[in-house]
């Protein structure tokens, strides 16, 4: 129970800025980013590792922040959705593709989707549609029926030109 829970100071770099804050040993990374550091762009939608909404990059690797403790990320470099666009506001190609291809509706799943696709395309700039769809299969989106996300993936893989490059009948 709470009174016996140990606390620790957790320090990490988030989107290039240094932070440190107190956390319970049991506090998840996602909760820590949201509650202690104010990065509310990371969304917790299942808190049991299935939906992918909470995905952030930890030392360059896409991680489910609901399945990782804040203390495990001590000393790490974290990238959240807030840090994906360039400092001048230019959208990351993944954000741009999702924007142009109607890849989001309510936007609750979107931060995780964008981080995963950004991680895949960064690890492998030649990532294929298949590679990206496979990575996407670990994300749940209740709104879009995945059509816009799939078009964004095709755009990222260079299979369709920018916006309106449709497969519309």
């Amino acid at each position: 129970m709470s009174e016996t829970i140990s606390r620790a100071t957790v320090a990490m770099t988030v989107n290039g800025r240094r932070h440190s804050a107190e956390a319970d040993a049991r506090t998840g990374l996602g909760e820590f980013l949201r509650e202690a550091l104010g990065y509310t762009g990371t969304h917790l939608a299942c808190e049991h590792g299935v939906c992918g909404a909470c995905t952030v990059m930890v030392d360059g690797v896409a991680m489910r922040s609901c399945l990782m403790l804040a203390v495990q990320a001590d000393g790490c470099e974290v990238t959240t959705i807030e840090g994906l666009a360039a400092p001048d506001g230019t959208l990351h190609p993944v954000q741009q593709a999702l924007h142009e291809q109607f890849g989001l509706q309510c936007g609750f799943c979107t931060p995780g989707v964008a981080i995963t696709l950004a991680a895949v395309t960064r690890d492998n700039p030649a990532a294929t549609v298949e590679d990206m769809e496979k990575a996407m299969s670990g994300h749940i989106c209740r709104c879009t029926g995945y059509q816009g996300i799939r078009r964004a993936i095709r755009q990222l893989a260079g299979e369709v030109p920018g916006p309106h490059g449709g497969e519309h009948a």
Binding site: R34, G41, T80, L84, L91, H99, L104, T110, P163
Partner: peptide, 21 residues
């Protein structure tokens, strides 16, 4: 027209305002 959505600017960059935010 397939006009890109106004909502995207905040939702794609983590600046949405859901209740828990």
């Amino acid at each position: 027209e397939r006009t890109p959505r106004k909502e995207n600017a905040r939702l794609l960059t983590g600046r949405g305002q859901f209740v828990d935010d």
